[in-house]
């Protein structure tokens, strides 16, 4: 397969940095990424899991051109991120939404914030206005366009941040624990928006998260451990591998755990069930037969 339909492709990607003490002397070398080989197809929805400190966020920063490989190569839509001439195009191709909504909103009015990215890219004003309108409608925040971001809830702020990334017309959106600080309703709104963008606009989504239920939305999952990809597969495959999950300090969502417990007790269920409705349906059919 050519490099063309792989929006993200890394070969032996590594990132090392020096750990320094208070006076700035080097006390050691940390290998935060240690030989990452991934190929992500354009239009897919990929989740990245891993314990705190496993290298997820470092990886995300590479995708967005905030960090550069110290070894190996990373291509974003065919562009080598190590080439500084590509940096702007890489950032435009792969937009990032961070964890804390308050750290990434800069303007006093929602629509100005969303227009900030395209304005910096030199997009003509009439086109900016059109894009801002479209992106705010896309994230369901259009009715708040004249509001101050300060008065929005966490989930609303994150949707504005997503709109701000969208306004740069990226092919890929990376969410680095972007739902971690949100309440359940806020989390759902952001996820619904992301799923819609993936399905309708075919934007590639890279979702970095600690919430296992969110992972069930993904087509494919990478599990990271100590800077390496420890395991990869579909959500069903990943959640079935209980030993690996434990080793990587993760766990399956409750519904999957229940299904696994029932299977152990001899109830014949299909593998990889992880929605409430899905499991309930299977159980009801089983009950009918008995």
């Amino acid at each position: 397969m050519g490099i063309k339909n792989k929006i993200i492709k890394s070969e032996n990607l590594a990132h090392e940095y020096a750990r320094r003490d208070e006076s700035g002397d080097v006390t050691g070398i940390v290998r935060a990424l240690d030989g990452i080989d991934v190929q992500i197809e354009a239009g897919s929805f990929v989740a990245v899991l891993g314990a705190n400190g496993s290298g997820k966020s470092t990886f995300a920063k590479h995708l967005n051109g905030l960090l550069f490989p110290t070894e190996g190569t990373l291509y974003i839509d065919g562009m080598d991120t190590a080439d500084s001439e590509n940096t702007l195009a890489v950032r435009q191709t792969a937009g990032m939404v961070f964890q804390n909504p308050d750290n990434q909103i800069i303007a006093n009015i929602v629509e100005e914030d969303v227009g900030f990215g395209p304005e910096n890219m030199g997009v003509p004003t009439d086109k900016i206005l059109k894009r801002v309108e479209e992106c705010l409608k896309e994230t369901g925040m259009y009715s708040y366009r004249r509001h101050s971001p300060n008065h929005l809830s966490g989930g609303q702020k994150q949707r504005v941040a997503v709109a701000g990334v969208l306004a740069m017309r990226p092919k890929c959106i990376i969410l680095d624990e972007a739902t971690a600080m949100l309440d359940p309703a806020g989390r759902k709104n952001v996820l619904d928006t992301i799923v819609r963008l993936n399905k309708k606009e075919h934007i590639t989504v890279i979702l970095i998260t600690h919430y296992m239920e969110e992972v069930t939305l993904a087509d494919y999952v990478y599990v990271m451990k100590q800077g390496k990809v420890a395991y990869s597969g579909t959500p069903g495959e990943v959640f079935q591998n209980v030993g690996m999950l434990r080793e990587c300090r993760l766990e399956a969502p409750q519904i999957t755990q229940i299904a696994q417990g029932l299977q152990k007790a001899g109830i014949p269920l299909t593998q990889g069930v992880f929605t409430i409705e899905g499991l309930a349906k299977e159980l009801l059919e089983l009950a009918k037969k008995r």
Binding site: P184, A185, Q254, I255, I258, I276, A280, L284, A287
Partner: peptide, 20 residues
């Protein structure tokens, strides 16, 4: 009010609603 219950609880509520 924007909150939920644990998945384990929700599954049982769902089954009960189906008349189980």
């Amino acid at each position: 009010i924007g909150l939920g219950v644990p998945q384990a609880t929700s599954l049982m509520h769902f089954l009960a609603e189906q008349g189980v």
